[in-house]
């Protein structure tokens, strides 16, 4: 238990970072369909054009409406197809080895939720089945995440609770304490989060990271005004790329101190998530009668 409570210490909920700003892409095309400030798409597009990455593992439209499917984008055109958030599982890490094989990438970009960033870093330090992958991760972009959903949950939330057909949904969003569904014809439905809770992916309830502490750069909407994103620059690699991208005029930025609601809200939500899930982890230890559910933060046993 010691180890996991360490991350729960107040002040570490945002992870290590060198820089935190509010930012937005300067590319209107990207912003048209981006979820927030288009940080992910813009940064990958810049890294691709500069040869910092050879391709990026992103999540794009799948076989059914709003069902994501990971793919390897090697052009800006392809990247454009991945804009926007699909609130259900996209196993992006499943491509991390193939990207170095039949795609021939030497410098991989990958985007993912905090847990997927954890998977990437574990893969670099303990590559049990990821031969020759560890030194090829050139840019790992993390997106903030409170929880994720199975596809069926999204279907039921949209089709039952919000009374809309999935294919006619333009955008979904979680923010300001609500689950928002925007229709193609201008309808807007908001659902209180207490409705969505039961639909969450169970694995998310032991998740102890909100703002992708292990990414090179992590981003999300929380903390910044609509259409803008909060950005943490965390590692040397991230710092290097971010600095160059700023110099190249890829982003408009505002100091995080100057925007509302600002970092305070990010911290608050991060702490709420971690505290709640830490409790779940602890309760799992006495879930049965003298029988515990597994705690991955203690041991693989």
């Amino acid at each position: 238990m010691e180890l996991s409570s360490e991350v729960n210490m107040m002040g570490t909920e945002l992870g290590n970072y060198k820089l935190c700003v509010s930012a937005r892409s300067t590319d209107k095309e990207i912003l048209k369909k981006a979820q927030d400030g288009g940080i992910v798409t813009q940064l990958f597009a810049y890294a691709l054009e500069e040869g910092i990455i050879d391709g990026a593992i992103v999540s794009g439209p799948g076989d059914e409406p709003w069902r994501p499917r990971p793919f390897v984008a090697t052009s800006v055109e392809e990247l454009m197809k991945s804009r926007g958030t699909r609130y259900n599982i996209s196993p992006n890490v499943s491509f991390i080895k193939e990207a170095t094989r039949s795609y021939g990438l030497d410098r991989i970009g990958i985007v993912g939720t905090p847990c997927q960033m954890q998977a990437v870093r574990k893969g670099q330090l303990y590559p049990a089945g990821l031969r020759d992958v560890p030194d090829k991760i050139a840019l790992a972009i993390g997106i903030f995440c409170m929880e994720n959903f199975p596809y069926q949950s999204i279907k039921q939330l949209v089709e039952d609770h919000a009374a809309m057909k999935l294919e006619s949904v333009k955008k979904m969003e979680i923010g300001k304490g609500k689950f928002w569904v925007y229709g193609e014809r201008g309808q807007v439905v908001q659902l209180p989060l207490k409705v969505t809770h039961k639909y969450e992916q169970p694995g998310c309830h032991v998740c102890l990271d909100y703002v992708a502490n292990l990414a090179d750069v992590s981003t999300g909407s929380v903390g910044s005004p609509d259409g803008w994103s909060t950005v943490f620059v965390r590692t040397k690699k991230g710092d290097d790329i971010w600095t160059k991208a700023i110099a190249a005029g890829c982003f408009e930025t505002k100091s995080i101190e100057q925007v509302k609601p600002g970092l305070e809200l990010v911290s608050k939500l991060a702490n709420e998530k971690i505290t709640k899930n830490q409790k779940t982890v602890e309760e799992r230890a006495k879930f049965g009668v003298n029988k515990a559910l597994r705690n991955p933060y203690l041991s693989p046993k």
Binding site: D54, T74, R101, Y103, G104
Partner: peptide
Amino acid sequence: YKACTPRAKSKM
């Protein structure tokens, strides 16, 4: 299972 992309081909 998988075809090699043009990039993979030129790398080889």
